[in-house]
Amino acid sequence: MKHKSFLILGLILGLASFFIWISLSPDKHLPTTPVDQNEVNTQQKKDNADQDKDETSETSDDKTISDGIKEAVTRVVEGAMGVFVKEDLDIVAIGDSLTQGVGDESDNGGYVGILEKSLKKSESDQNIEIKNYGKRGNRTDQLLKRLNKEEISESVKEADIILMTIGANDIMKIVKDNFTDLKYEDFVKEQTRYETRLQSIFDTIQVKNPDVKIFLIGIYNPFNQYFSEVPELGQIMNDWNKISRNVTSQYDNISFIPIADLFEGRKDLYYKDNFHPNLEGYQLIAERVFEYIKESIQQEDEKA
Rank of each mutant, 00 (worst) to 15 (best):
I257V: 06
D239K: 02
Y226P: 00
E232K: 05
N224Y: 12
S228R: 07
L233A: 04
P222W: 10
N253D: 11
S244D: 03
M237D: 05
Q235K: 08
V230F: 12
F227P: 00
S228P: 03
K242C: 02
D252Q: 15
M237F: 13
S249G: 12
N246M: 08
Y226M: 12
W240V: 06
D239F: 00
Y251C: 08
I259Q: 01
D239L: 02
G234Q: 04
D261F: 04
M237E: 05
Q235G: 02
I259S: 00
D239I: 00
N221W: 10
P258E: 07
P231D: 03
I243F: 07
Q225A: 14
Y226W: 11
R245V: 01
P258V: 05
F256Y: 15
S228C: 05
Y251A: 06
A260W: 01
D261Q: 11
L233S: 05
V247K: 08
Q225G: 10
S255N: 15
G234E: 11
A260S: 03
N241P: 08
F256I: 09
N224T: 09
Y220L: 08
N241L: 06
T248L: 13
N246D: 15
S255T: 15
V230Y: 12
D261L: 08
S255A: 15
K242W: 01
D252K: 11
N246H: 13
P231I: 02
R245A: 15
E229R: 06
Q250V: 00
M237T: 09
D261G: 01
T248A: 15
Q250E: 14
I236E: 03
P222Q: 10
P222T: 07
R245E: 11
K242Q: 07
T248N: 09
F256D: 05
Y251R: 07
Q225I: 14
V230H: 08
N246V: 09
E229L: 13
P258M: 01
F223R: 07
K242F: 05
Y220V: 11
I257D: 00
L233C: 05
R245Y: 08
Y251F: 12
V230N: 11
S244K: 12
G234A: 08
N253Q: 13
I243N: 13
Q235W: 02
P231G: 03
S249M: 08
N241G: 13
A260K: 05
N238A: 12
L233G: 02
F223S: 13
E232P: 00
I257L: 03
S255Y: 15
Y251T: 01
P258A: 07
I254R: 14
Q225N: 14
F223Q: 09
N238V: 10
G234S: 12
M237K: 03
V230S: 03
S255G: 15
S255F: 15
Y251W: 06
D261N: 11
I259P: 00
I257C: 00
N221R: 13
I243T: 15
S249A: 15
F223C: 07
N224K: 13
I254Y: 11
F223E: 07
S244F: 04
D239A: 01
Y226E: 11
F256M: 13
L233Y: 06
P231C: 04
W240I: 04
